[in-house]
């Protein structure tokens, strides 16, 4: 009869949707867990980076005043700064 067919259809539908929703939730939980693991790893890397920076502080080149005299024999000479300073001074001289 019609009602019986409808009843069994409802049963089948419920079975299908229950299974599907279960699968979807499982998938989402798996993805979330993977994301959490990845983020934990990222956090560890960040912490390691911070610790490394603390242990090996980067020697920042001090702001050498422009037109300062430079020593070419200096092993720690900052050539970039020297050249930029030279260019700056040339520009100033031309204007």
């Amino acid at each position: 009869s019609t009602v019986n067919v409808l009843r069994y259809s409802a049963l089948g539908l419920g079975l299908f949707f229950g299974f599907r929703n279960d699968m979807i939730l499982k998938c989402n939980a798996k993805k979330k867990e993977e994301q959490a693991q990845y983020e934990e790893k990222l956090k560890l890397v960040e912490e390691a980076k911070k610790e490394y920076a603390k242990l090996h502080p980067v020697v920042t080149p001090k702001d050498v005043p422009a037109n300062a005299s430079f020593n070419l024999e200096d092993p720690n000479i900052d050539f970039e700064r020297v050249i930029l300073n030279a260019v700056e001074s040339l520009k100033e001289a031309s204007t």
């Binding site: 009843r7 049963l11 419920g14 299908f16 229950g18 299974f19």
Partner: peptide, 17 residues
């Protein structure tokens, strides 16, 4: 009939999940 259908759907969902 509607209530019966809801019941059957729920039972199916229980089995499915």
């Amino acid at each position: 009939y509607g209530i019966q259908l809801i019941g059957f759907y729920s039972v199916g969902e229980i089995i499915g999940r």
